[in-house]
């Protein structure tokens, strides 16, 4: 597992208060991890902070699962 994936999962666990083993690549923030729309906004902000990137709103809308976030950040995080 990449370093980025580890850091993403850690953030998800902290923000959504879910068990680590539930945070799988294909887990949907809303459907599987109990997030609401405001939680997802906050998650994206946490990713921005952690990885020092800006995630534009249209990109944020495509980040629906843990894997989506990891993929986006692997591509865009410096």
């Amino acid at each position: 597992m990449s370093d980025i994936a580890d850091r993403v999962k850690k953030i998800v666990v902290e923000h959504l208060g879910v068990d680590t083993d539930k945070v799988k690549d294909n887990a949907s923030f809303i459907d599987d991890l109990g997030a609401d729309s405001l939680d997802t906004v906050e998650l994206v902000m946490a990713f921005e902070e952690e990885f020092g990137v800006e995630i534009p709103d249209d990109a944020a809308e495509t980040i629906l699962t843990v894997g989506d976030a990891v993929q986006f950040l692997e591509k865009n995080a410096g």
Binding site: L38, V41, E42, M45, E48, E49, E54
Partner: peptide, 10 residues
């Protein structure tokens, strides 16, 4: 402003 939480207001 991008650092203001969506939970700030509620």
């Amino acid at each position: 402003p991008r650092r203001i939480s969506p939970f700030f207001i509620p």
